[in-house]
Amino acid sequence: MNDPLLDDVKALLDKDFGDDRILKQICRACENNEVISNYERNYVRKLAEKHLGKKPEIIPTPSAEEKKVVPDVVIPQITPIQKTQTLQRKPVKISSNSKNTKIMVGIGAAALAIIIAVGVSFNGVSDGISKIDNPNNSVPVSLSIQTDLSSYSKKDLISISGTSNTSGVVNLSIVNQNNKLVWTEQVSLKNNGKYSTLAIAGGSGWESSGTYTIKVDNGVEIKSSTFSFTA
């Protein structure tokens, strides 16, 4: 059985239609059962329709497959079931034993009396301490003065601190071994009655080594302390 494509190629070559080179190549491929591309087949088909009166080849298109209708998935609506739990308190049964009740009431009263007595005694003790030791809970009960060291050399810093049971200021002073004033300063008291300041060991009156005396005066009393100084 002859190949229609080969017949068309030979007819086109006989009537000298188309490109001889391409047609001869297609003819040789048909005779040797070689693969012929779609491009070559379409080329021959168009020439045959144009010059040989071939009717256009109607290639039946395969009917489109019916689309498979996938039914919509209907998700059932789940109505949450709310369970309301009613918590019922069971009434506490009170024993009707009057004897036990009286015993418990008596023990509770005794315990309460002991607690009250202990609280009153502690209050009394604390009040006594606060009244005797610290009436204002913030102001010390005496006047004091001290230095951070017991001996100093020239140009050392002397740290001075102390307490006073007064308010306002205190007057500080240092005298040398000849009772000559070599330093003085007025220092304000803090809310808790404490004071502190610094002095430099040196200057006029500090020429000689010896025992120096530091004093504090709060207007009511005077306290003093001593330290050694090396010039």
Rank of each mutant, 00 (worst) to 15 (best):
N2H: 10
N2L: 08
D3T: 10
L5T: 11
D8C: 06
V9H: 08
A11G: 03
L12Q: 08
L13A: 05
L13N: 08
K15W: 00
D16L: 01
G18I: 03
D19M: 06
L23M: 07
I26P: 04
C30Q: 14
E31D: 12
N32A: 13
V35A: 12
N38T: 12
N38M: 06
R41L: 10
R45N: 09
K46N: 13
K46G: 06
L47W: 01
H51D: 07
H51N: 11
I58M: 04
A64G: 03
E65A: 15
V70M: 10
V70C: 07
V73S: 13
I75S: 12
T79I: 15
I81F: 15
R89W: 11
P91V: 12
V92R: 10
K93V: 14
S96D: 13
S98R: 08
I103H: 09
G106H: 09
L112T: 15
I116H: 05
A117M: 14
I132N: 13
D133P: 02
D133G: 11
N134S: 11
N136Y: 14
Q146I: 07
T147D: 01
D148T: 12
Y152V: 05
S153W: 06
D156A: 15
D156K: 09
I158Q: 01
T166K: 11
T166E: 11
V170E: 02
V170M: 03
V170K: 04
V175L: 00
N178Q: 07
K180H: 00
L181M: 06
W183S: 01
W183D: 00
E185R: 07
S188F: 01
L189F: 01
K190Y: 11
T197S: 04
A199L: 10
I200V: 15
G205F: 03
E207Q: 15
S209A: 10
S209P: 05
Y212T: 02
K215E: 05
N218S: 05
V220Y: 13
E221H: 04
I222M: 04
I222D: 01
K223D: 07
K223C: 04
S224K: 05
F227W: 06
A231I: 00
